[in-house]
């Protein structure tokens, strides 16, 4: 931690109630950068800090194992499902045009359900509402394949800042991000805002941006969702994870997307 960041951290801790009140007022307009937040020009993708071999895997679609999920997702896109006998392609036609940029602006607020939905939630919403099919369980291979296929269409695009109606959700996500939890009494921010670039045991601490999800994690030997990654971190903090698909995870996802606004999408990425 640099001297400046350490001072920020102490200030931050000392004046938390006052700070929180000030933020509540300011956030009505637009969530501002706070002390402890990573300056926009210092943000880096996990890609920038990973090894040469892992980068090579991500750079080459035929070496990136997530491509296997993309092939499944492409097949599922035009497969008829549910009582309505409709495929995704029947409404959305070609994903390359209709899904372009969608993953870069999710989670988004669904006015019909009056709650924010991430991509997985949106796909399941389509299944129940339009296809009249059963929602897919989280981390199900088909759901990951479809999510990866949708997210792939936004590769290279900049993450869009969430619209106004998502602000309360983003704020809720930030509150969870900065809350100390678990037996180790850690918050997400203590690692990913205050100590990124340093080491936790042998591993580099990344800034924790969600720009490559769903992604192939070598440790998982599989594609996994952002929620799986978040649960992974919570287990590491010895905190009790939320149920997959819960509003807390969606809020965290929304905050992380706000935090990574403007960064390039890499989905489906490869990470160690």
């Amino acid at each position: 931690m640099t001297a400046a960041r350490r001072i920020f951290h102490i200030l931050h801790a000392a004046s938390l109630p006052a700070c929180a009140a000030a933020i509540c007022i300011l956030s009505l307009a637009a969530a501002p950068l706070r002390a402890g937040d990573i300056p926009l020009n210092q943000r880096q993708s996990g890609y920038d800090t990973m090894g040469r071999d892992t980068r090579a895997m991500q750079d080459d679609d035929t070496a990136n194992p997530a491509t296997l999920w993309l092939l499944d997702g492409e097949a599922l896109w035009s497969k008829k499902e549910g009582a309505a006998g409709k495929a995704c392609a029947d409404c959305h036609t070609d994903a390359a045009t209709s899904m372009k940029g969608v993953a870069a602006r999710y989670p988004a607020f669904n006015t019909k359900q009056n709650k924010p939905l991430d991509i997985e939630g949106r796909i399941n919403n389509c299944r129940t509402e339009h296809q009249q099919a059963q929602p897919l369980p989280f981390e199900n291979k088909d759901l990951l394949a479809l999510t990866a296929y949708v997210a792939r269409q936004s590769r290279g695009m900049a993450i869009a800042p969430p619209p106004e109606n998502m602000q309360p959700v983003v704020d809720q996500g930030r509150a969870i991000f900065e809350k100390r939890q678990g037996q180790l009494n850690l918050s997400c921010a203590q690692c990913h805002d205050d100590n990124w670039g340093r080491k936790l045991a042998g591993s580099a601490i990344p800034q924790g941006h969600p720009n490559g999800y769903p992604l192939y994690r070598l440790e998982w030997q599989s594609v996994g969702s952002l929620q799986r990654r978040l649960r992974n971190c919570l287990i590491g903090m010895r905190a009790e994870g939320y149920a997959l698909g819960s509003p807390e995870y969606v809020a965290l996802e929304a905050f992380l997307m706000w935090r990574a606004r403007g960064m390039k999408m890499e989905s489906p990425a490869v990470r160690p």
Binding site: A63, T67, L68
Partner: peptide, 9 residues
């Protein structure tokens, strides 16, 4: 030559 195959192993 590069090959990749999906399998749980």
């Amino acid at each position: 030559i590069k090959t990749l195959i999906s399998h749980v192993m």
